[in-house]
């Protein structure tokens, strides 16, 4: 029963909160969508925090996502021990990067009065939750080797069962508690997403790669259509 609440009910609630909350915030308070960059107030420490943190977390999250979307291909990829080694070592290094970066960001927020001045309590909640999550992740990777292999046989089937609305928690109930905490932590972050600056992740400006440099907006332009820019 308890497991059902944690691994079925909670994920659904978290996703529902994220979707409803995210949409509400997007349509009711779009002004609040921002990275809330603090680089203007402090640059040097931000560099040593933000760069390792983001490169680490973005790549690791992408790997989680890829294995979830293409479990067969992923399984084939890690079937070869050399590739598995390479992947795990890269993963550990990236995890270390995220931890170092995030600790740097947190220390900076504590220590620099200017950064402190632009920090809300939700920022603290988010930073602590993220730190817990990446530390747990690192712990899992160290203590329960070859996660890139067993992930596709435990977490992925469980997550997929949630997606198709036929929850099946037998894949995860027997896992060690550290692993379980890491999984739940993921959904805590999902639930936090609409209330924090995490919304910036969903507005990544990829359109910059192809949009025309100059943007011109007309209220009314008679004449030939399609000459908006």
């Amino acid at each position: 029963m308890f497991d059902t609440i944690l691994f079925v009910a909670f994920p659904y609630v978290a996703v529902a909160v994220a979707v409803v909350g995210g949409l509400l915030r997007y349509f009711k308070d779009r002004f609040s969508f921002s990275s809330q960059s603090s680089e203007f107030l402090e640059k040097r420490e931000l560099f040593w925090g933000s760069v390792p943190w983001h490169y680490g977390v973005v790549i690791i999250l992408t790997a989680h996502l890829l294995a979830f979307l293409f479990p067969d291909a992923w399984g084939a990829l890690v079937a070869n021990p050399v590739r598995l080694y390479a992947l795990e070592i890269t993963g550990l290094a990236l995890a270390l990067m995220t931890i170092v970066g995030l600790v740097m960001l947190i220390v900076r927020r504590v220590q620099r009065p200017r950064i402190n001045a632009v920090t809300t309590w939700l920022d603290w909640v988010l930073l602590v939750a993220l730190l817990a999550q990446v530390v747990l992740g690192f712990w899992v990777a160290l203590a329960y080797r070859w996660g890139s292999d067993w992930y596709v046989r435990t977490a992925v089937p469980w997550l997929r069962s949630l997606v198709v609305l036929q929850p099946n928690i037998q894949f995860v109930t027997a896992l060690p508690w550290v692993v379980k905490l890491h999984m739940l932590g993921g959904f805590v972050l999902v639930a936090l997403f609409p209330f924090t600056r995490l919304v910036h992740v969903f507005t990544v400006p990829v359109t910059y790669l192809w949009r025309p440099y100059q943007v011109v907006i007309w209220n009314r332009r008679p004449g030939p259509a399609g000459r908006r820019v």
Partner: peptide, 12 residues
């Protein structure tokens, strides 16, 4: 041109 989000614009 530098705005990644395309948030800056010229009024036609």
């Amino acid at each position: 041109a530098a705005c990644p989000a395309g948030a800056i614009y010229k009024r036609g």
